[in-house]
């Protein structure tokens, strides 16, 4: 088995999703190349080279690859795929955008969002918002797979793989990057945080969400939200946890004013400990919570902050 991992990065640095995908690759074989395709992406490539247990880093450095546009990236993936048995990418918005295009032009039926590996051709993946787990075997000679990052540990650094320059930048002239509005935050990233404080419709306004931010900062936590809170405009879209948002699996997930629709549970039910704070004792979130507190969040959150503040460890 030889495996190509499509590294996710911002040219300067690697994104942590790549580390989880490398771990999935290690379950398939030991010959693992990581592709860093970008522009002025030496920083990301050098960082990738230090991931323990990989064979090489392939660096494709070309202006056409600067923004990771799928139209320009997919032909590169296609040109490399012949050397591999598996091509893996993270099931992040980056991987989900790119890999199906590459799969289509390679005539491969991609396997999306795998959470388990049974053998080189057999994988487990959630369907129906995680309400069922399907085990599927691929009959394609080449496998293209996106990996659910929370289902695989992050690989460690400490290696020293060679970085090889490859060519392959193609500008398909189909699309242009025209700017981004990224959410800037000093808090941990949702998908890698140990603790998440998440709010729902019960928060009632974006001003009230700042209560959760204060609580999160006391705990060193990331802040998430249900779809209802994002739709209502309380917080930006990248806070959304759920079937169609981010999938998270922290040590503690504190759901505040979240009723617990199946679409939300799909994104957080692999958390180690779930805490639910909700004034409706019938809320479905209590059925999955390790610790449930039936309380008005506007009283509960200040009390929680006070308790954490008074006997901080």
């Amino acid at each position: 088995m030889s495996i190509l991992v499509i590294g996710e990065h911002d040219n300067a640095a690697l994104r942590p999703s790549t580390l989880n995908v490398v771990t999935a690759a290690k379950a398939l074989g030991s010959d693992i190349d990581v592709l860093i395709a970008g522009s002025d992406c030496r920083g990301a490539a050098d960082e990738a080279a230090t991931i323990a247990g990989i064979t090489r880093v392939l660096k494709a450095d070309d202006a056409a690859l600067l923004d990771g546009l799928a139209e320009n990236m997919a032909p590169l993936v296609k040109s490399l795929a012949g050397n591999y048995s598996h091509v893996l990418a993270p099931a992040t918005t980056y991987g989900k955008n790119l890999l199906p295009r590459a799969a289509a032009i390679l005539d491969v039926q991609q396997i999306s969002d795998i959470s388990g590996i049974e053998s080189e051709d057999t994988f487990v993946r959630p369907i129906y918002a995680g309400n069922a787990m399907a085990t599927v075997r691929s009959n394609d000679a080449l496998k293209l797979i996106t990996v659910r990052t929370t289902s695989f540990e992050a690989s460690e650094f400490g290696g020293g793989a060679p970085v090889e320059d490859i060519s392959g930048g193609i500008n398909a002239q189909l699309s242009t990057f025209a700017g981004e509005e990224l959410t800037r935050s000093e808090r941990p990233e949702l998908t890698t945080a140990d603790i998440i404080v998440s709010g729902g419709r019960g928060m009632q306004s974006s001003e009230n969400f700042s209560m959760l931010e204060t609580l999160a900062d006391k705990l060193g936590a990331a802040v998430g939200a249900s779809r209802a809170a994002v739709d209502a405009g309380y917080v930006p879209n990248d806070y959304q946890v759920g079937q169609t948002g981010k999938v998270v699996a922290p040590n503690v997930y504190i759901a505040v004013g979240i009723s617990g629709a199946i679409q939300h549970l799909a994104g957080m039910k692999d958390s180690k400990i779930i805490v639910a704070i909700n004034k409706d004792e019938e809320a479905p979130i209590f059925q999955v919570a390790d610790y449930g507190w039936v309380a008005d969040l506007f009283e509960a959150i200040p009390q929680l902050e006070a308790t954490l503040g008074s006997n901080a460890s």
Binding site: M133, A134, V136, K269, I274, Q287, V288, A289, D290, W293
Partner: peptide
């Protein structure tokens, strides 16, 4: 089809815990 569905299972359950 290129994929064969070998089986479909219920996800591991999560029991409700305690109230505080």
């Amino acid at each position: 089809p290129r994929l064969e569905v070998l089986r479909v299972l219920e996800p591991p359950g999560r029991a409700a815990g305690i109230r505080v």
